[in-house]
Each structure stands twice: as C-alpha cells, then as structure tokens.
C-alpha cells in the first residue's frame, strides 16, 4: 500500500513547540495537515546537529518514485528523547508522517515513523 494521505489530524498530534529547535516553525507552518507516506524505503538516517535528516524514497500510486528528505530534531534532542541512531536501517519499509516544507517540495518535518514491526515512534 503506497498511498499518501493528507489529513487534518490535529486531534491526534499534539503540536510540540519544543521540537522546533531554532527553526521556530516558519519553514513548516502548517502543523495541522499531516502528510502520511506509507511504504517509504529508508535510505539513511543522518543523526547529526543542528538537525537530523531522514533520507528516503517513496513511490506514489502512479508508480513514480522520488527521493524525499525529512527534517528531524538535532541528535542531542533525539538522544534526550530516547531516539537513537539505530532507529531505522537502510532498506527498512516504514510509514513517515510529517508536515510539509513551505517552499521545498518532497521535504517534511517528520513527526513520527511507523517502524517495520508496527511500532509508531513520535519524534521530538
């Protein structure tokens, strides 16, 4: 199932202002519309400061495959929240949820990841 779901899920996602670090949110202003990318294939998790990066590819319903990039909190915030660098491996099939960048296409602020074993991990 490789569908992108865009919906208003504000009731399920508490907007965590602490997660914005020095990116106060203006690059990802619409926090109520959550983009859900099922069947994303992990390329790499870059566990670095000032922001982590999740590189992955995703194929839409028309079969078009494209590379995506997800912004995460910095590694110090991730480790403080119990999210470690072994969260995902290259080749893992996951669901990525997040908020769209206001100008860069295929770029999300990642709010959570559904891992291959079905666990959903919220990210700071």
């Amino acid at each position: 199932m490789k569908t992108a779901t865009i919906g208003t899920l504000a009731a399920f996602f508490v907007i965590n202002t602490l997660a914005f670090a020095h990116h106060g949110g203006s690059m990802y202003p619409d926090r109520e519309t959550v983009v859900i990318l099922e069947g994303a294939i992990i390329d790499e998790l870059l566990y670095v400061n000032p922001h982590g990066r999740l590189l992955f590819s995703w194929t839409d319903d028309n079969g078009a495959n494209a590379e995506w990039e997800g912004e995460l909190s910095g590694s110090t915030e991730l480790v403080r929240s119990g999210v470690f660098s072994d969260l995902v491996q290259s080749g893992d099939q996951v669901t990525v949820k997040g908020w769209s960048h206001n100008s860069i296409p295929r770029n999300l602020r990642v709010s959570s990841i559904v891992l291959p074993d079905g666990r959903e991990v919220s990210l700071p």
Partner: peptide
Amino acid sequence: AMFFHYHCDPLDATGWRLPTTE
C-alpha cells in the same frame, strides 16, 4: 539536568542530499 556536547560538523550539515527545488 544532563547536558551533552553539541557536536556540529559543517560537512555533515551541508553535505546532505542537495536541496530539491524546481
């Protein structure tokens, strides 16, 4: 509180996938 060293390497910070615009 536990504090961490804030490691930040410009090569990591700018060596990511190219910013994708049109």
